[in-house]
Design a protein around this nucleic acid. Sequence first.
DNA 1: TGTCACATGTAACCGGTTACATGATTGA
DNA 2: TCAATCATGTAACCGGTTACATGTGACA
Lengths: 181, 181
Amino acid sequence: MALEHALLVALSERSGSGYELARRFDRSIGFFWAATHQQIYRVLRRMEEAGWVVRTDVAQEGRPDKKVYQVAAAGRDELARWLAEPVQPTTLRDELGVKLRGASLGDEGAVLREVERHRDEHAARLEAYKSIQRRDFPKPDALNGRELHQYLVLRGGIRAEQSFVDWCAEVVDALRAEGPR
Amino acid sequence: MALEHALLVALSERSGSGYELARRFDRSIGFFWAATHQQIYRVLRRMEEAGWVVRTDVAQEGRPDKKVYQVAAAGRDELARWLAEPVQPTTLRDELGVKLRGASLGDEGAVLREVERHRDEHAARLEAYKSIQRRDFPKPDALNGRELHQYLVLRGGIRAEQSFVDWCAEVVDALRAEGPR
DNA sequence: TGTCACATGTAACCGGTTACATGATTGA
DNA sequence: TCAATCATGTAACCGGTTACATGTGACA
């Protein structure tokens, strides 16, 4: 149950509507916690009921009203409480591993192509993250506070994607080497 | 929805009861797809209804009956179908990233200690995986077929844990360097 | 005496996914 | 004209988590 807290973090940086949050998630906290707009809308309503955030309706011309949320005192308290609380380290969860494990029970060529596809997709994400790093954090040694934390989260995304790409490459090499035995 | 297929893979290697599968998961497919015994029991029943597996009740002395499942023809077909089907590459999903991102909104020291704790936990898993590698796959170059696939899945687990440990270490270094400014 | 391994289950809950709906504006 | 962007929502579903329950045998 971290979406609440991910939203509190995002709203602490800057207030915004559900729609804005959904887009912001795609390129920051989303590296570690993806969310769809439906889910964000629902959780924001729940958080409003709980008094963690305050809603302000903003009328717009030609567009639907915007519901801008900002963090309330109770939300700040809840976030601080959660930050100090330990969470379980996660385990990998990727169907590709299951497919590879079962490859000999089906079309091995199809599984190989699937691994290549995932490798390319993760390589594309890696490049996207690296370009964010170049653009937003050219001098990482000078960072501190919130900016340093943002940088380190991005580093986590880069490391994870890199390691996935490397693994896929290892798998492809090994399967190609044994394939045409 | 991969637990069905993960179970089909596991049962294709060897038939077994829900209890046995739960334990096997802890040290093989579990690297990529963890599951609790409750969930396994439920899914096995559903799979039996669908005709993917066949159940045989085995009476035991002093212990409850064992329900041993084996893969049926329909299960083999379903597994082959699923293996050839593409899946979405996954995104990281780890609360630790959210906590780090929000560290300046709470007790930064607590977040740092949490990162250290996760680093140690992932390092322990890494060592466990490496010892499996040494014991079960001393000569990886000689592998092929199912054994090669098993080895490559283990390699994925090792790479993921290693990259997580490295990231945590980077975070700890950076936070310690700025901490006592 | 107490805990661990064996073995399976019910029930409630909740977080996340998917499909579908609405409606205006902007730009290719 | 078509797609994309802005902006929010309902509804159904489903996979996974957590808590609790039961009962024996082996071992420290």
